[in-house]
């Protein structure tokens, strides 16, 4: 037996899930080669301009690299092939995506560990709070609070 309310909730949930499933199947607008060039050029640092990616920069090198990416995209190369080509042509410091191995690769692992640790800590805190028995004030406690209150009220200061 479902209440009216739970039927509405089930309906909403089903609608949300099916929309999500459909959304993965729908084709977006066709991706032009330029769309790919732009996406890729955001992944590479412009070697001569401080801290800008190839996509943002209008420096000569950045334009050259964009043209380079453009040519390789037109040739039908994969993203990985283009990355390898650019890294070997320039330097590893051009690749804005940190490698996944070695010391460099720790950057992908550390945040996940920290987040897991953070939520585990949160969960354990909640568990501790839940397990703390509800404390009831003893008569002595009540008397103590009352006497302090009287004292405070008689004191005249807030």
């Amino acid at each position: 037996m479902f209440s009216k309310r739970s039927i509405i909730w089930l309906g909403l949930l089903a609608a949300a899930l099916s929309t999500l499933v459909i959304s993965t199947q729908v084709d977006g607008p066709p991706r032009t080669n330029e769309d790919r060039v732009r996406a890729l050029s955001q992944d590479f640092a412009c070697p001569t301009c401080d801290g800008q990616s190839v996509a943002e920069s209008n420096a000569v090198v950045a334009q050259e690299i964009r043209r380079d990416i453009r040519r390789q995209v037109d040739e039908g190369q994969t993203d990985a092939e283009i990355t390898d080509a650019l890294v070997s042509a320039y330097d590893e410091s051009i690749d804005l995506r940190p490698r996944s191995g070695g010391v460099v690769g720790l950057i992908w692992i550390v945040p996940v560990v920290v987040m897991v640790f953070g939520f585990a800590a949160l969960a354990s805190v909640f568990r501790r709070w839940r397990d703390t028995a509800v404390q009831t004030a003893s008569d002595d406690d009540v008397e103590l609070v009352e006497s302090l209150r009287r004292e405070r009220a008689g004191d005249g200061s807030s």
Partner: peptide, 23 residues
């Protein structure tokens, strides 16, 4: 972490790397 990682990596093993958009 992403902002200072290039500094940390360079301090550890001298590699020059970049961290950007994809990360």
């Amino acid at each position: 972490l992403g902002t200072v990682w290039p500094l940390i990596v360079e301090a550890i093993n001298g590699d020059r790397i970049a961290v950007g958009n994809p990360f």
